[in-house]
Nucleic acid binder design. Structure first.
Length: 272
DNA sequence: ATGGTTGATCCTCAA
């Protein structure tokens, strides 16, 4: 973002998007980057083997890419045209579920434009009594401990699919979600612990609810019926939160054939 | 209709 860069505009656009397979979504992701002029994109659910990630499609339009994943569900990436340094998967003390490498595949950390970008894909708890729910809550406790250390080290954005709807207004029907995953007290307490640590939801002040959703199930025409959930969040350290000048949820990307079930969440951050 | 949609390691499982 030095002087002389024709893209320099005193601001960066930073987005997060659960694409539900990068290989099946690439013909939407590339135009989306260009249309919305995004500098940094955190991606979740790449659903691809590392050797099949379409790196060149990003590189040929001027973005650097880091990707990490190990199976068809969990995979995260960071795409940036303002530098991409120190990209590394995982976080300290992540507990394991099944394959030892899974927790690391859910988090990718990189430094872009002077900001630590963390692409986060929180485990799906499946059901409130499922062992995966215990894993999810424990995993979040470990991530929080790591996030607290990052907070002390400099500007940080934790962005991605949290698989938690923190408030009743974040789901289309609390009656429907009662006793289901994403809204349970344990999950909401885990999300709140990041806020208590000092992170700030930088989107909600710009887009207060209700009915501000980022995800709509593919089934039952949920998008067309306006029945969604707010489960994708950008949590910023206070220094970054003070620099946020705007935010948007790109609902266009949920429309039509070949859409992900999640929409991109975009923020704008000033250089100063 | 104990159903519905989408994606991948594709006829089964995960989301």
């Amino acid at each position: 973002m030095a002087g002389g860069d024709l893209r320099y505009r005193g601001k960066m656009r930073i987005a997060t998007w659960n694409v539900n397979s990068i290989r099946s979504r690439i013909e939407r992701v590339i135009p989306s980057l260009e249309r919305t002029d995004v500098d940094i994109l955190a991606i979740q659910e790449t659903k691809t083997r590392a050797d099949q990630f379409p790196f060149f499609r990003f590189e040929e339009i001027g973005y650097q890419v880091a990707h990490h994943g190990f199976n068809q569900w969990n995979g995260v990436a960071i795409v940036s045209r303002v530098g991409l340094e120190e990209a590394a998967p995982g976080f300290r003390d992540a507990p394991s579920w099944g394959e030892a490498s899974e927790p690391e595949a859910r988090v990718l950390v990189g430094r872009c434009g002077g900001i630590r970008i963390v692409s986060v894909y929180v485990p799906n708890g499946r059901n409130i009594a499922d062992p995966h729910m215990d894993y999810k809550v424990e995993w979040l406790a470990r991530l929080r401990a790591q996030a607290q250390e990052w907070l002390a080290e400099g500007p940080t954005l934790l962005m991605g699919d949290w698989n938690i709807a923190p408030r009743d207004e974040d789901v289309w029907s609390m009656e429907f979600y009662e006793d289901k995953s994403h809204v349970s007290p344990r999950e909401r307490a885990a999300f709140q612990s990041f806020l208590d640590t000092g992170y700030v939801d930088v989107v909600r002040p710009v887009l207060p609810g209700p009915k501000v959703y980022t995800y709509w199930d593919y089934q039952q025409l949920r998008f067309q019926k306006g029945r969604g959930m707010r489960i994708d969040f950008v949590l910023g350290s206070p220094d970054i939160a003070a620099r946020v000048t705007g935010a948007a949820i790109d609902r266009e990307e949920r429309k039509g054939k070949g859409a992900s079930d999640h929409a991109p969440v975009v923020i704008e951050v000033t250089d100063g």
